[in-house]
């Protein structure tokens, strides 16, 4: 048997793995499950320093700290001291482009109506006290919407 033939047999064998998928019901429910996940993530968003602690200490917990980890831990300790000496701001949201939305710029709207799937700037402008906003969606589903004003993201 030539090597090429061997590979084609192997490839046939590997195709068996295509069957290893969950049933269609899993995929039918996935979008709803994702909305639930996304909502939970937004409500329980960890502060950035918790993520830093997780990244830094995970190798220590696993028992294999590297030199880079030790150096990064020391750098973070210094940065952490500086951070905690400064003012702490709560209620901010971290955005995909690295900016942070100021708490005043985060707006939440809740409704059971289907129309709320689209953010309506006029309504939220009114809720924001009549100021004109430049809204960007953070999260929207059938029950409500969370948006931020891009002018208040720094």
């Amino acid at each position: 048997m030539s090597q090429k033939e061997d590979f084609s047999q192997l490839q046939k064998l590997l195709r068996v793995k295509r069957l290893e998928t969950p049933g269609q019901e899993y995929f039918d429910r996935f979008v709803d499950a994702f909305h639930t996940y996304q909502r939970r993530e937004i409500l329980q968003q960890e502060p950035w320093y918790a993520k830093v602690v997780e990244v830094l200490f995970e190798p220590w917990i696993a028992g294999v700290p590297r030199l880079a980890t030790v150096a990064a831990s020391a750098a973070c300790l210094v940065a952490g001291v500086a951070f905690f000496l400064g003012p702490i701001q709560s209620g901010t949201a971290h955005l995909a482009d690295g900016k942070v939305a100021h708490p005043r710029g985060i707006l939440v709207a809740a409704s059971q109506k289907e129309e709320s799937l689209q953010i309506q700037p006029e309504l939220i402008d009114t809720a924001a006290g009549g100021d004109t906003t430049e809204l960007r969606p953070l999260y929207v589903n059938g029950h409500g919407a969370v948006a931020y004003d891009s002018r208040l993201a720094f």
Binding site: Y37, L95, D97
Partner: peptide, 13 residues
């Protein structure tokens, strides 16, 4: 879930 969440947050970029 993480992948679709990350992609959604990164869409503006």
């Amino acid at each position: 879930m993480e992948v679709f969440d990350k992609a959604y947050r990164s869409l503006p970029t």
